[in-house]
Design a protein around this nucleic acid. Structure first.
Lengths: 234, 234
DNA sequence: CGCGCAATTGAGTTTCGTCAAAATCGGTGG
DNA sequence: CCACCGATTTTGACGAAACTCAATTGCGCG
């Protein structure tokens, strides 16, 4: 699953980071050649398929990840055993920041759509974040983004009626630039919105009936953006 | 509201930070004398009373705060105008981290219980976080704590039945070491748990009837911790 | 073709929100 | 000290929303 990169290639990796097509998502785009030479372990690229688990709650973590493409869910479990999805991470987000502070992951990270990740050794991130101001600033920005996302998750997806929550989720899943979106299983939708799969299904059916969404192909929808916004504001 | 401290006194402030009784809550406890000398603006202590507003959403922020004592709510507003409390901050927490990245506060910060705060100039924090490894690490730890809190807020206070949420809230409000807790207005409880004030009131009444909580003095309760935990796990 | 799993739909129950009225609390002024 | 006022809280009755349990449909895959 992880494509090994040798130490010399790590400098190629450097070039990769600095010229990365998805530069905004690479953590190490601001690093110098020196920085890379001091790394004991190279940055590796990891490709994962839907359903695979990147890490679990309580795993001792040695790596952080950024997402180049794809979609991953972060899950936590409640005392009564049910699961709750607390965040979706996608291109330009980081996974595993928590291990810079503690040593264990706090979520279970499960792949929803085939994903390309970059894997960074914790030790290197810790050390370089102190010496490299660009990485330092970038790291803070990503931490803050995660926090802002968490707040939005709470206010948009966990507050109000099922219809409002669903509308918010749909709009949030819009492929950028279009008015289309992919959906995933009703079970995942349920544990995002904190509703049952039946309510999720019924709400979607109702939206289809109202013309707020049209199914183009299985789980791929065209959305009536204005209409959904009306529901949210109502 | 802000007690001015002169530049010379800022060095006293240094001593204060380093010997702070609530050391864990002071941001600058790891700073050197040099660090303090380079500061253009001193650290100030701010005292605030219930109801006062520390900052609002969109305010341009020049200061971060730590809480020495007291309790503050962070509020965001929904599209339909209702408000949602997204976090409670208390001793050892930081407020306003977001301005290290953006420039505006993302919440409205309102005092719930009389609070003593330390106020740090953004500029100093930004600069020192790069040069001082202790502050650097501390800052990351606090950012992560905010994120962990946000996740727990979601799973414990925004998921499940009103009874479970209320039980979680009560246990979370326990004064440490005791089995007692203060409550605040039903309206605040409502916008923490995302329920109406009526449901909040009814749930509390029911808990009292079941002997899960006894009102010692107004809004001050003795809790049946084991009993409340049973509700959560059910 | 049929099996298994996910999604949908239906019926009945529970929970929660809404609207309205009563009770309680805190403070003010007579 | 008490009476009165406004605001908050509590309680009640009703309706709407969401959950539960169950049956049905639809779909992918062997």
């Amino acid at each position: 699953m992880a494509k090994r990169v040798t130490l010399t290639q790590a400098w190629d990796g450097n070039a990769d980071c600095r010229n990365c097509l998805i530069r905004s998502s690479a953590l190490f785009s601001g690093l110098t050649e020196q920085d890379f030479e001091q790394m004991h372990e190279p940055v590796e690229q990891v490709n994962m398929k839907p359903g695979q688990v990147l890490y679990k709650v309580g795993d001792t973590g040695h790596h952080l990840f950024t997402i180049r493409s794809g979609l991953i869910k972060l899950v936590q479990y409640l005392p009564d055993g049910t699961q709750r999805i607390v965040r979706l991470v996608r291109s330009a987000d980081v996974l595993g920041l928590e291990i810079l502070v503690g040593s264990q992951y706090e979520h279970e990270a499960v792949v929803l759509r085939a994903s390309e990740l970059c894997r960074y050794p914790k030790e290197a991130v810790t050390r370089l974040s102190q010496s490299n101001p660009v990485l330092h600033k970038d790291l803070m920005a990503r931490w803050q983004k995660a926090l802002t996302d968490a707040d939005a998750w709470l206010t948009q997806l966990s507050t109000g009626s099922a219809k409002k929550r669903m509308a918010n989720l749909l709009l949030r899943l819009l492929e950028d630039g279009t008015d289309e979106c992919h959906l995933f299983s009703r079970e995942d939708i349920g544990s995002i919105l904190s509703i049952t799969i039946e309510t999720a299904s019924r709400t979607i059916s109702e939206f289809k009936r109202l013309g707020l969404m049209k199914e183009i192909r299985p789980n791929h929808f065209h959305l009536d953006i204005a209409g959904l916004n009306k529901i949210i504001e109502a």
